[in-house]
Every structure is written in C-alpha cells, then in structure tokens.
C-alpha cells in the first residue's frame, strides 16, 4: 500500500516528464498536452464521486467554470496572485458543491435526479454569469498583461510551466485517489456505491461521506479551472461548458468506475486522439471527437460495463502483489 503511494507518483511523473522533450518543447503541442492533463485530472477527481461513491455527477463544467472565474476575476479586479486565486477557486467550488450537495443528499436524491440537477447547475451558472454583467456579460474579460512573472504565474509564450503545473496536479490527484481508496473513507464510499442501506447499517453516515467525496472532487476540479484560465488568458460565461461535464463522466465510466489507473490512462489516450481529430477533421466535422467518445461510451457500457480499468486493475494487482511478496 505504501509502496503504491511512492511508486505511482514516481512512475507517472517520470513518464509525464518525458513528454515535453518528445514534443520538441513545441509551445502549441505543450498547450494541447497541458489541456489534456487538466481534463485528465478532472476524470481522476471524478472517480472519487462517480467511481468510488457511485454518484453520476455532471457538474464538472460548473466547478471548472467557478475555478476559472474566481481565479480570473480576483486577478483582473484585485490583482490577487493566482497562487492564491487558484486555491480560492477550488475552495469556492467546494463550498458551492456542499451548499448544493447538502440538501441534495439530505433529501435522498439519487441516480437520474442527481445527474440531472448537477447538469442543470452548469447551465444555471452559465446563464447567471451571462446576465450578471458586472462580473460576466457577453464580452471576454482579459487577464492583466504583467509579462513573465512567477508571482502571477504568468509565462507568456511558454507553456512548459503550465504543463508542469498540470502534471503535478494530475499526479497529486492520483495520489489522493490512492490515499482514499485504501482508507476508511474509500471503503465507506465503495460500500455506499454498492448498497446504501447496507452501508447505513454498518454505521456509515451515508450523506456525510457522499459530501466528503463531493467536496474533494469539486475542489480539485475548481483547481483545474484556475490553471486553465492562466493558459486561456480571459474569462467568459461560455466556459461554463456542459461538454466538460459530459466528457469527464464519459471518460470516467469508460475508464472503469473506481479504477484509479483506468480513468487517467483512457483519458490521456482518448483526449490525444480527440485533439488529433479536431485538428485534422475539425473543419468538416467539428464534433468528430465527441462522436467518437459517445460511441466508445455506448459500446463499453453495453458490452463491457467494468470499463478498461477492470483488467488494468487486475494486472496492476498481480504486479504489485508479486513485488510485495518479494520484499516480504
């Protein structure tokens, strides 16, 4: 168990650090790679609420957007450094999630209604910021031009830094996944996913633990928004994007519910293919990558509900188990 906590971040950081040289430190590719890592981070975070706790959450686009707006607006209006802004973005996202999650779980909303209300949250925030002219409105609000600055985390024309930030956040999220999975919290969430009544009878405060999962997930997704806005350079209500929600859930399900490795691996692969499709065919069929995601999702759910994580996990289990024995 402790092995995994050291090995996994080391291996994944090692692999991720090979990417920039392989891309020839090309700025455009690094931008794409950073975006892929941020989306992958969301998938890994989603695993906590969707995979472990079994709640089909479709609010990623909302929490991501909150991260974007909190980090962006604090920077634009008050010159608050994103070093703090990103963190606050995550915090506000988590607070919002709890404010909505508390009654949602209190009143026992499950499955379809939870999914629908979380998806509605994305549209509500989009429209709210559209109407709320003093912070949102229809025009882009650009981040101040401060030049190269560590303090403001601004690195104009050099996406390597953002790539590294995204990579660190992803690895941290995976570590959080591992920590949760093999702890009381993880077992409690899995029990809730498997059978809520049985979980209650084993002394689990189902609502409270669902809320914990929701908080951790929304906090991390909020952080991704903070890094995202630094790369993008502006805020706009359209960034409350329902596709982010759908994409995250699709990749989480295809990766395998509760699988720590499955989601991130499938996400990196499919998002890379998606970027290729977007660049290559985007002119003729703008949504080709979305079509691909949808078809893969439907095939996986209909024919291999465990997702690819199922055999990935058993493979990983076998490897680590053998290693563990050698050490012992």
């Amino acid at each position: 168990m402790d092995r995994r906590l050291i090995l996994t971040p080391l291996i994944s950081l090692g692999v991720l650090s090979l990417v920039p040289p392989l891309l020839g430190f090309n700025n455009y590719y690094l931008l794409l790679a950073s975006l892929i890592l941020l989306y992958t981070t969301m998938v890994s975070a989603w695993n906590i609420i969707g995979g472990f706790a079994g709640q089909v959450d479709l609010a990623a686009g909302a929490y991501h957007g909150i991260g974007i707006f909190v980090t962006g607006l604090l920077f634009i209006f008050y010159r608050v450094t994103p070093l703090i802004g990103i963190f606050l973005g995550g915090l506000v996202a988590a607070l919002l999630a709890v404010a909505i999650g508390y009654p949602t779980f209190r009143f026992g909303l499950r499955e379809v209604w939870y999914a629908l209300s979380s998806l509605a949250l994305v549209v509500i925030l989009y429209k709210l910021f559209l109407v709320w002219e003093s912070v949102g409105g229809t025009i882009e609000r650009y981040l101040p031009k401060v030049g190269f600055s560590w303090f403001y985390l601004m690195f104009p024309g050099n996406y390597l830094y953002y790539y590294l930030m995204s990579a660190l956040l992803l690895v941290a999220t995976i570590v959080v996944n591992i920590r949760i999975r093999y702890s009381k919290l993880g077992y409690y969430l899995l029990a809730i996913r498997e059978n809520e009544e049985a979980a209650e009878m084993l002394g689990i405060d189902v609502r409270r633990y669902k809320l914990y999962a929701l908080m951790i997930y929304s906090f991390i997704v909020g952080l991704t928004g903070g890094i995202f806005v630094l790369m993008l350079g502006y805020v706009h209500p359209v960034l409350f994007d329902s596709w982010i929600s759908i994409q995250t859930a699709i990749l989480g399900i295809v990766g395998g519910l509760g699988s720590i490795a499955g989601g991130p691996i499938i996400a990196v692969i499919l998002l890379a293919i998606a970027e290729y499709l977007r660049v290559r065919f985007g002119g003729y069929i703008p949504g080709l990558h979305q079509i691909l995601f949808a078809i893969i999702l439907m095939l996986i759910v209909l024919f291999k509900p465990g997702g690819i994580g199922e055999w990935l996990d058993s493979l990983w289990h076998r490897i680590t188990a053998r290693r563990g024995m050698e050490v012992a």
């Binding site: 899995l190 029990a191 996913r193 498997e194 059978n195 009544e197 049985a198 009878m201 509760g258």
Partner: peptide
C-alpha cells in the same frame, strides 16, 4: 443486522 433479501457488495 442482516437483511431478509441479502444486500451484498458485488464489486467488493
């Protein structure tokens, strides 16, 4: 307690 109709954890 246990349940009349078992409530197992299939994936655990």
């Amino acid at each position: 307690r246990t349940f009349q109709i078992v409530k197992p954890f299939p994936e655990l």
